[in-house]
Design a protein around this nucleic acid. Sequence first.
RNA 1: ACCCGGGUGGCGAAAUCGGUAGACGCAAGGGACUUAAAAUCCCUUGAGCUUCGGCUCGUGCGGGUUCGAGUCCCGCCCCGGGUACCA
Length: 793
Amino acid sequence: MYQPDVVEAKWQARWAERGTNEPDLDGAARPFYNLMMFPYPSAEGLHVGNMFAFTGSDVYGRFQRLRGHQVFEPIGFDAFGIHSENFAIKVGSHPARLIPANIANFRRQLQRMGGMFDWRHELSTTDPAYYKWTQWLFLKLLEAGKAYKKYAAVNWCPECKTVLANEQVINGFCERHPETRVEQRTLEQWFFRISDYADRLLADLDDPGRMDWSETTVTAQRNWIGRSEGAEIEFALDHNRDITVFTTRPDTLYGATFMVLAPEHPLVGEITTPAQHDAVHAYRAAAAAKDLISRRVGEREKSGVFTGAFAKNPANGRMIPVWVADYVLMEYGTGGIMAVPAHDERDLEFATRYGLPVVPVVDEGGMLIGSGEFSGMLADQGRSAIIRWLESSGTGKGVIQYRLHDWCISRQRYWGPPIPIIYCDEHGAVPVPEADLPVLLPDIEDFRPDDSGISPLARHEEWYYVPCPVCGTRARRETDVSDTFLDSAWYYLRYPSTDFDDRAFDAERTRRWCPVTTYIGGNEHAVLHLLYSRFIAMVLHELGLVTFDEPFARFRAHGLIVKDGAKMSKSRGNVVVPDQYLARWGADTFRMYLMFLGPFQEGGDFRDEGMSGPRRFLDKVWAMVGDCVREDMCGGEVRRELVVKWHQTVKRATEAIGALRYNSAIAACMELVNALREARCCDRQVVQDLIVMLAPFAPHFAEECWERLGHATTIFDELWPEWDEQFVVESRVEVAVQVNGRTRSTVIVGRDAGEDAVVAAALADAATQRFVAGKEVRKRIYVPNRLLNLVVG
RNA sequence: ACCCGGGUGGCGAAAUCGGUAGACGCAAGGGACUUAAAAUCCCUUGAGCUUCGGCUCGUGCGGGUUCGAGUCCCGCCCCGGGUACCA
């Protein structure tokens, strides 16, 4: 009788004892770094979605190990961040108290699922031994000129008395206070120059030799970076000033009938005429009061106000009015546009509302009209011709614009790594000397944010005031902490080197294990986390600290586990916790069930009705192993059809697992078991291969079976079975016989039988005869070993 | 609105090179074993018709290409996820 709880506990203990999952990090000849996205250790514990993702990644790691690699499969915890902090506030506790308990619970669950984790290298981003190096990384970027400070707009919730991330603002209201409108505040923040890398981040995506990534993820990154080719054009104002705009449609330059500046545009104040001053002032004040999100999302109706100023179109010399409107964003392009209502929907909407003229300059055939010397050209030609003209006349130039902004890493919060900077009246922003790292996050009870817009750390004077590292006079610490995305942008570098406390990552270890061989994670991180990690790797590469500049050689996005057709979330109340299933069915059955429910890269709907299927399957295999152990049941020659099935199964399972189609691999194994049972065969060699193929899915079960079969060492030191192509193809094949494309019969013929033989066999068949008798066969299509199609007239 | 996925039996799905649609599993029905139940084993299971040999229809909808389309092309509809006035 197979007892999962006993078997699983036994093997988990044995793996720990024997160091089964601990590769030789300094000597591995065929290193394989199998990485999964580390979890945020929530109070609720691991949910089914995490379990699905981790199991899928673990299956892959175990498979690669059986293929002869030394697999390093680490795990850790992404435990800093606003989520933990908000949760602590809600339950009246402290994140530093809650997180260890959450991590302990996660660790228990991860061990229970039987992951091939190397626990020697567990890490938590909240550990000073970790964030010391996150701070060090910040200093490296600062040193390299990749970090800078500037004023930027943030979302502010007056009720929470804190800054909110864009994701926490729902239609202009606070996520936690649906009655409270979010405001906009401008604060000075630290940024990383990721936009300097836009081109390289984009170029590598097009190089599959360097980056073997899920196509969906590549597309998401491409869209996020948002490269647009176009031109910057200068429209002259009076007094030697001009307005520069960005457009992707320089070919429509003659159709510009007005201009629009973003309300924050610095020129607005200067150019507004006295008559329009009050109206413009009021409009700008109203725009500033609106939060960032509702400006973009909530109120779609265009509004604006005339500045009273006019600017000159460099192409035709026409003076056109300059307006201010909040549909133009300061963050993109130059913060100002030339409006071409004839060829832009938004401009048209605005023109219609304010009665501005509309002048078409491209006809239905895509040809330029009313465009001076450029008339008659096709738009594409016109585009480059106009750019050339702009450049020669000094009124503009071709430029490339990106949607990607620099990365703001400042958070006016408590639960994160303090940014290692000290402000001195004399010396300005001074980096904390490396020897003084880490800047410890003080353990304070009063960590709640207030409405000052300044981090709670500023209230703790004993921490806040420090001597300036340069002159020793009283100076102040930076009170912002860094974004959690910075923690996770380099954690893969830390894993192999957690045993070094004098360096972030050891050069030799890193060379052996990085870049990560295969990274598996959710597509919700397709953009930010994966893009930030790539950026950090590029900077480290430039600094000569790593030998590679793309951190993840292969990335696969797993699917989403949904419940009742919708994403699992606390607010929907449909989150499924795996513990009850682990307790009832055991880890192996549960793993197998999760991997069988659909293609790993697509995910699926979680319903527990199917759980008994994989369990029954394991029971059957268990019984088969029992038969195999009793000598009298075994022996004799394995029938040819079974040999074929066996080799076919090895082939199918190997290819399916390689492609992450785990459900198909399991189905193939099930078919083999059905065939063996039907033939009452329990050939030892076949059964052993079967157990090895099941090992990635049901590791404890496989180990136990392996031991019962008389082996003393772990099954994971075995080698994955090979198949022999000559056995994969059956000696006799069934060929479909179609008449006019419809299958009417089948004939059994020898493999690779010639067309004439198959036609003869088909015509001899009564079922086929009924459809061809008395008719002329005008055409025959023969696909060897598959089908014969007779076209009759 | 845009960008990705996806739509196949009662259900999860398979068929990824245009070649026998529904493998594998769940659920359901029938039978065997059993005092009984559970477990296990065997059979049936896309729909409709049938003289039980088969026939017709069938992969979201409408067209098309092809000897042949779940698969390719054109035009839609629906579901899930992401992004949000990007000039």
